[in-house]
């Protein structure tokens, strides 16, 4: 119920200010610094001119004369826009395909109660536990035999191998939190299985779908091993692979451009998270409020 009095005060009176500094603020500050420092370093390097980057005298934590040269190199002298487009395309398509498959799988395992449903759920989870660093070898053989090597399809079709198990498990937990009576009531009201799924379950599972979607999107966006193995030409590469293969020449690291690429590449995911963070949390904790 929403009309409860806010109980944020709770037992706060037991906490004196110095105690709160020790137990809450200081650990939080340390944690934040640890987490955010790499991003700070990345952002700073992206805007730092090469002279400052290599100079021993310059302050490593600050920029004296910021520049957009690295971005200019990245956007106009490499295939970065193409990598970005590939990443978007591969992530979006494989996320939606995986979500669709996972919805059906999770609903069937959770609610159709067929013989062996539990074992199927477990098998799907076990599939998720097989590390990609082992799986990429047989998958590479399949990709080559299907004639998909060095195409975006190679990635769109292989990413669901780890996305579907993950999304299925997340959605299974979410579907479980939807009261069974709602479906039974709909059944008596005259709904078919399909109508129950579309009109009752999916609208209620939106937070779960969003969190599964964000997770799947992030996993595909950052995926490295398959993208490194299954594509080779520059115009089919994704951002994570393109940046490290094309901006490192021999032992020369184009740090500025590398970091600019990383910065631009991490922005879409950050934006996505910030939009849906509330859904994301309720999706992970799985609660349907009546």
């Amino acid at each position: 119920m929403s009309d409860k009095a806010p109980d944020t005060a709770g037992m706060d009176y037991l906490q004196t200010l110095p105690r709160r500094w020790v137990t809450v603020y200081i650990p939080m500050i340390v944690f934040l610094i640890l987490l955010l420092f790499p991003f700070y370093w990345m952002a700073m390097t992206a805007f730092k001119p090469n002279e400052e980057l290599v100079s021993r005298a310059a302050n490593p934590f600050w920029i004296v004369s910021p520049t957009l040269a690295h971005f200019e190199k990245l956007l106009f002298r490499t295939d970065y826009p193409q990598w970005m487009w590939n990443t978007v395309l591969v992530s979006v398509v494989s996320t939606f395909a995986s979500l669709a498959a996972s919805v059906f799988a999770a609903y069937a395992i959770e609610r159709l109660r067929f013989r062996g449903a539990k074992q199927t759920g477990l098998a799907i989870f076990l599939a998720y536990l097989v590390p990609p660093s082992i799986l990429f070898i047989p998958l590479a053989a399949i990709v080559v035999q299907l004639g998909l090597f060095d195409t975006r399809w190679a990635l769109i079709l292989t990413y669901p191998t780890f996305l579907i198990p993950f999304c299925t498990w997340l959605l299974m937990g979410y579907f479980r939190s939807i009261p069974y009576e709602l479906e039974e009531c709909a059944l008596i009201d005259g709904a078919t299985r399909w109508q129950i799924l579309v009109k009752i379950i999916l609208p209620l599972a939106v937070p779960g779908l969003i969190s599964a979607g964000i997770f799947a999107f992030t996993l595909s966006w950052n995926e490295f091993i398959y993208a490194l193995t299954f594509v080779s030409s520059s115009e089919t590469k994704t951002v994570p692979v393109g940046v490290v293969t094309e901006l490192v020449e021999g032992d020369v690291y184009h740090w500025g451009a590398l970091m600019a690429g990383a910065l631009l590449g991490s922005l879409p995911v950050a934006v996505l998270y910030s939009f849906f963070v509330e859904y994301y949390v309720s999706g992970m904790t799985g609660a349907v409020k009546e």
């Binding site: 009261p179 709602l182 059944l187 008596i188 709904a191 209620l204 009546e290």
Partner: peptide, 20 residues
């Protein structure tokens, strides 16, 4: 006969109202 063709209506213990 499936539930929807029995011409019945049921009221559940927890009401089972569609929250959305």
């Amino acid at each position: 006969v499936p539930p929807k063709e029995r011409d019945i209506a049921m009221v559940f213990q927890n009401y089972a109202l569609y929250p959305h």
